[in-house]
Design a protein around this nucleic acid. Sequence first.
RNA 1: GGAGAAGUGGCAGAGUGGUUGAAUGCACCGCACUCGAAAUGCGGCAUGGGUGCAAGCCCAUCGGGGGUUCGAAUCCCUCCUUCUCCGCCA
Length: 434
Amino acid sequence: MLDIKWIRENPNALVDALKKRSWSEAEARSTTDDLIARDEARRAHVLKLQHAQERRNAASKEIGKAMAARDMALAEKLKAEVGDIKSFIQDGEAEARRLDRAFTDALAVIPNLPLDNVPAGKDENDNVELRKVGKVSPPANWAREHFDIGEELGLMDFERAARLSGSRFTVLRGQLARLERALGQFMLDLHTTEHGYTEVQVPLLVRDDALFGTGNLPKFEEDLFFVPHGESRLGLIPTSEVPLTNLVREEITAHEKLPLRFTALTPCFRSEAGSAGRDTRGMLRQHQFYKVEMVSITDADSSVAEHERMTACAEEVLKRLDLPFRTVVLCTGDMGFGARRTHDIEVWLPGQKTYREISSCSVCGDFQARRMNARYRDKDGKGNLFVHTLNGSGVAVGRALIAVMENYQNEDGSITVPDVLRPYMGGLERIEVK
RNA sequence: GGAGAAGUGGCAGAGUGGUUGAAUGCACCGCACUCGAAAUGCGGCAUGGGUGCAAGCCCAUCGGGGGUUCGAAUCCCUCCUUCUCCGCCA
């Protein structure tokens, strides 16, 4: 959520920012004007209401004094007077709530402002490569995609998964199931022992409020799964960014405690409503997948540096696994709703002969903090400021499994186990057809 | 699932209809005393919003939301959370 005071003072800057996010000039302008109009209506109304409340409060105090002085005639006279204001105040409070709600609803669907150093662009074709790491060997003519490798090994089963749950689910068995578990453990251990993140076990079902806090609601409800819960519902987390970030919601964190760095290995659930027909084969795009997530909570001055640090932590996972990758900055048009700047890490898939996203690290500034009311007490103890939040995959476990399978495949159909994973695999060196 | 109790400022803890945004203690900040520290004394110390050049003034907030009343931390409804007992259960 953006700061309405800032919008009031910089309406043209908001229009420019929205245009950078591929909004049309007309839409950006009318949305901005609408926000400002709603804000003004709200404030004008509050002013009138507060004057009425002021008169009521003063009169009520006088009534108290009159009654203490046993001057019942004066008390009754004042009561009659305040009685008239009362209905105005009651209607006024209801109207204030209505105007406030309408204003917040409008503000809640405005995306975050891109940082100045984010390249302008329309879609993923305008993203800018920052670096390429690792050697991409010329694709062998026998290189295959992960689903062929997995099915031939008899360890990856889409048919039965579909019978259980439909499309976009996968059953893994034996050493392949273990390999995925090994990947998750390896990543978690790396971040907790070397990168300073605290491991957290979080709920996988969360309230709407939490989803609003991270920006998944109200705009992206169709991407989420919900389960009924009493009269209400709970959402399945699309990423542990949601519970990890909301850990500081409605709190004032002491400045000395920042930065907070959290990591978690959790399943993630996504309806993939808008991606029918995309990546239908294999386990690249699933309704359910494991991911190791990193979340940092920082003060206002440290978030940009923390973003570089977090990106490096994610890259380190791929370096240790010896997987070739490249890191790109998303252009303004390709960035997510809550992000100010996003680095995507794309891993090389020899079977697909292309780079595919395996991590996405974003700095959100105070955008999510406003939605969560997450603050910290300033160094000098003066004011309470909104924290800055960052999140990044460190990395997607399901996709890491795919990357390992494709990059470590052998011509005979076996998969070499990467060195760093062998301790997690009981020393196993190769996964092969039995 | 059934029965009961409770949610007040950073923390502890008063307050059951009228200058109570809230006693008191602790913590914290400033000053005094001291060579320095401790102890002691004095003063300060909630958040959000509106308005104003500013000093300030005003409004709201005692778990959230709604209501009763001239007036609500205090009464009513509802939701959330925590705790205790019973039942069930991984």
